[in-house]
Each structure stands twice: as structure tokens, then as C-alpha cells.
Design a protein around this nucleic acid. Sequence first.
DNA 1: ACATTGACCTGAGAGC
DNA 2: TGCTCTCAGGTCAATG
Length: 262
Amino acid sequence: MPELPDVEIMRRYMERTSLYQPISDVVRLNEDVLRNLSADRLKGTLAGSQFEQTLRHGKYLFARTNTKGWVVFHFGMTGYLEYHEEKGKTHRHTRVEFIFQNGRGLSFILQRKLGGLWLTESVAGFMEKQGLGPDALDGKLGSDELKGVAQNTGGSVKSFLMNQKRIAGIGNVYSDEILFQTGILPWTLTENIYSEGWQKLATKTREVLETAIERGADPGEMPGSYLLPHRREGDICPRCKGEISAAKISGRTAYFCTGCQS
DNA sequence: ACATTGACCTGAGAGC
DNA sequence: TGCTCTCAGGTCAATG
């Protein structure tokens, strides 16, 4: 799930459901996912406060409270948020649950404990510490900027896109989609991409991510011309009806079409 | 500076 | 049905 579009959907979800409700308690705290704080500190900091604003950068979700800075969520490979209206009806993989005064709750659910939660006073400071690059949907990130971010780096275009220090928000699935839409094979070296290629990459990155957000980051809702619903080895390419191939690139499985990408 | 590997976790699905 | 193996949308550290 949680690449940029998924996190953006969760941000909007949180915004819709969980703002301006006083937090009465924080429960089901799993220390494994608390990154720079103890369960007691989280509880102590949040009890009596409320979330007032959300913000996303890359795959991170920030929620500002009216008291002490921001709660930071990262969803790993399996995380999501779930707001529930009925008490006690919560998922077994809930790692942190915020209980609101009205009895409702917001669960931070992680099956695998690869995500995490932090507290920070400063979003900018947090991003700096994590070494995050500009958000992939940053309005200022045009083809020149993208090219600039790729400067002084070798390596494949796929690992470039997935490198959060260069651009934040793109993971394995959406890098495949962007490269499919752009018509570039994933192992192409960034140094072999010229102006026209960067132009296309910048355009398609924005287009793919925005489309995904519009469609609720639901693979089943993607346009017919997208790779996502066919992202399996041997599946049929939605463009040329050829076969989708798979290969390991920087340790992750990349899916692509040799007929449509070069 | 890059790619690769393994570690961190847990569960789903495949193959036997 | 049950076992074992492999793999999964992420990141981090160690190694080559």
C-alpha cells in the first residue's frame, strides 16, 4: 500500500475523521513501532490534546497537535489508519490507538512492524534528519529540477526514483508504473537519459501520482492503460498485449514490458 | 557511489 | 489438512 498516493489518501482520511477531537487516551501501544519515544511519553504528551492539521511529505504523514508539535506516521509495507466509531471494534494489528473523548478511535495498524511513529517539534527538522528529498508532487519539481536531483548520481533510473533522499514518495509499485508510462526500461542508467527523457519522466511522474490519488490509490480503479492491474509476470501488457516481464533491480522485483519500454 | 544482501516483522499463497 | 518455502507496496546497516 503505502507509497505517496496511499499516504495522501490516508492523510485526507485522517483530516476527514480525526481532527479537533480531544484525545482522552492512547492505548494498545506497541513499543516496537515507537521510534524516538516511550509509550509513557506518547501518552503523556497527547492526552488532552487534539489533532489540528495534517501534512504529508513523501511517504510520511504528519499530524500537528495543539500542544506539542507533531506526530509522525510511517506505514512501512503494510500500514494504514482506521477510524472507528464503535468502541472495542479494532484490528488485531493495531500498534497504537488514539481514543477520542467521544468514544471513537483512530487505529494505527501495521501487520508487519516495519512502519513507525515519532514525535517531533519540527517537520522541517524531521525531514532533514531523515534526509528526505523533495516530495515527488512538489509543484516546483519540473524536468530541470528532476534532472538536477539526479545530478552526480549513477545507477538505474528505477533506483533513482525509489531513493527517498533524491525524491520522496515513490516506491516499487509506482516506480514501475511511471517507467511504464514513460516508456523507459527500469535498468536504464540516469546518465543515459537526455532532456526529452527527463521531460517525460517529470510529466509522467506527476500524472501517475495524481491519477492514483484521484482514484483513491486503488489498483482496481486505475485506467485501462496502466500497468498496475497487470503487474504480474506473464500477465498481458495493456498497451501492446505482449507479456509482462519481471527482473530484480536494486533488490526489488521490477515489472515491465519489453515491447513498450526501451 | 553504487548494487547486493540480510535484517527487521508477519502473513498469504504455492507446492508438496 | 498441514507443512515448508518464497514472496510482499519499506528502510537500514554492512559488505563488495
